[in-house]
Design a protein around this nucleic acid. Structure first.
Lengths: 345, 345
DNA sequence: TTGTAGGCGTTATCAC
DNA sequence: GTGATAACGCCTACAA
């Protein structure tokens, strides 16, 4: 026992054990402990056993910080989005988290809450992750550009593609056209668009598609007005629609809304104004959130979950390969006909 | 210029600049750069300027890993939840993120997706944060206990309090009683409870409250059956309710559901079975999600956002103070009467 | 006011 | 197989 004095080594006190504590306890070097843990090189069975024992006795858990610093990676990805209110973003984030989890990456979220200047927060986030996805108008092109320039892999989601980043979005074009045609087929000729195209690239695309389908219809229909909703929630939709309905004589026959929540607000406003839907006004939404089914809202279904999951996979890919070209992906959408746009026999 | 050779120092290549690069460039020591950045000690104006210049020229951004390792903190908090599907958890997480953001902490999320054994993932998460909130039945008491034992501050949310952790939840008792009374007042005497109390502590409390109110009513009503929904989503509710309605003769007159999504499913099942709501069956939910308003669902409104925000604040507190006693907080809820539980004049 | 040096906890490269 | 030792990037006493 001369060489003894073994196994007395204990970590400072309440503080967590380090790899050095384990090494001392097992009578080996820290390097060996690391190898034994990670199976990164052959270790004698006996040594391995002693290390394992020391680890459990000391309840050793490697410090994430130490590992990350040494490995040069965070094993975490970030996602920035405008808000989590409303089902849309939540579903996308969920799809993202699920896929990222399978790829063994933690997910750090950052919501800009519609507020301005999240630059600092975005940059901070960028420093905590191996890659970032930017959802919608969560942050300006300038900031995204900055992040890309810093060398961080970036994937944009539901947002105009940026050079140097991959992009995934839903196929707004297809369903916008289908929706426009459908409304024209119902015989509506006067439609108003309710939303904020300048706040959401997606919406701008939808509007363009609807407009085109309308004028191409036979007989041709047209957008008579485009009004800002100043927001994408139910309250905003309610206010904006109320204003539209109040302008009496020029009352439209169809109100196409930028998303379901605005449409739900419009439905409320119609009720307030004693306007029957769809007999006196047709109203449509976008996203197919859960409430839409119960409100009888005609809308467009997007694969929200899958959008998030795909973004996660693309980001993971991009982190792997160094700097190949930019990928662009488009996911299909589908028009969901219910009663708010008119009667279907 | 003999002492020259200044300001040529550049970071290795494409790699980000370190504090050493900046120091060399500004002709000072790393320590001074740190002090200048953090205002942690007086620095001569001239020195400060030179440092600032060097920083911008080199686009220096302190490495989060380096800072965290040195500071001994992550400046990040975690939250584990069962799922983000459905509005409830999403809203809570949003409230949490918002508050955490104001406290200058990043948020790392982890969904267990109902799946089992997230132990490893939870422990990994625990190693990345300064504190953790556990939402609902996201993870077993054993694992939570392990995390607490490791010394990490923990706050539980909508889950039975655990010694060593703070706890916040909604006041299920109050509204459960109100709901039970209301149903009894409608004259219903046969009610069935639809949900999985063993999967959600919240639900167990609600059931207890409803039962108590029912038997205390005059004339006394009672729960005739308690059926498992095997899940908390619309599909689960639909299946379970269909089974209930199929058992012909013993048809209940009121179905109290564990949450709104189950209730929505029950509403669908009632429609399938050609049962009029509320004339032939009354149906109630819980949470007051957006769809509830459109489905005319009687339910209970919880301050979901505020639950998350409060948890964030309590966690931040707990990280500050060392090991004071455990706090317990209860947030109020409110019964929301709509048409699914019966006619109101 | 500023510099020096040690520490935070791991991984990985060399030798042995 | 295993052990030194040098990174990784920053902060902060301690000295000067």
């Amino acid at each position: 026992m001369a060489s003894g004095r073994t196994s007395t080594a204990a970590p400072a006190a309440g503080k967590p054990a380090t790899i050095y504590d384990v090494a001392r306890r097992a009578g080996v070097s820290p390097a060996t402990v690391s190898r034994a843990m990670r199976d990164t090189a052959p270790v004698a069975v006996d040594t391995r056993r002693r290390v394992a024992e020391a680890m459990t006795e000391l309840r050793f858990v490697p410090s994430r910080l130490g590992v990350s610093l040494a490995e040069g990676r965070h094993a975490a990805n970030g996602i920035v989005f405008p808000d989590l209110a409303g089902p849309y973003f939540a579903e996308v984030v969920l799809g993202y988290e699920e896929q990222a989890g399978e790829l063994d990456r933690s997910v750090i979220i950052l919501s800009t809450h519609g507020r301005a200047a999240p630059r600092a927060k975005v940059l901070d986030l960028a420093g905590r992750v191996d890659g970032l996805v930017v959802l919608g108008r969560a942050v300006g092109d300038d900031v995204v550009g900055e992040v890309i320039a810093s060398g961080l892999p970036v994937v944009t989601l539901a947002r105009p593609p940026i050079s140097g980043a991959d992009a995934v979005s839903a196929d707004n074009q297809h369903s916008a056209t289908a929706l426009g045609r459908h409304l024209a087929a119902h015989g509506y000729t006067r439609v108003v668009l309710l939303g904020d195209p300048q706040d959401s690239p997606d919406v701008a695309h939808r509007w363009a598609g609807v407009r085109a389908a309308l004028v191409d219809a036979e007989p041709p229909a047209a957008v008579v007005e485009e009004v800002r909703s100043n927001g994408f929630d139910v309250a905003a939709g309610h206010r904006a629609a109320a204003a539209v309905f109040a302008s009496g004589s020029s009352r439209p026959v169809a109100v196409v809304c930028a998303n379901d929540e605005i449409a739900l607000g419009a439905l409320e406003a119609a009720e307030d104004a004693a306007l029957a839907v769809p007999d006196q006004v047709a109203i449509t939404g976008w996203d197919d959130i859960m409430a839409a089914r119960w409100a009888g809202l005609t809308t467009v279904c997007q694969p929200m979950r899958e959008l998030g999951a795909l973004a996660a996979r693309m980001l993971d890919d991009r982190i792997g390969r160094a700097g190949a070209g930019d990928r662009r992906e488009l996911l299909p959408t589908e028009l969901v006909l219910r009663t708010s746009c008119g009667h279907h026999s």
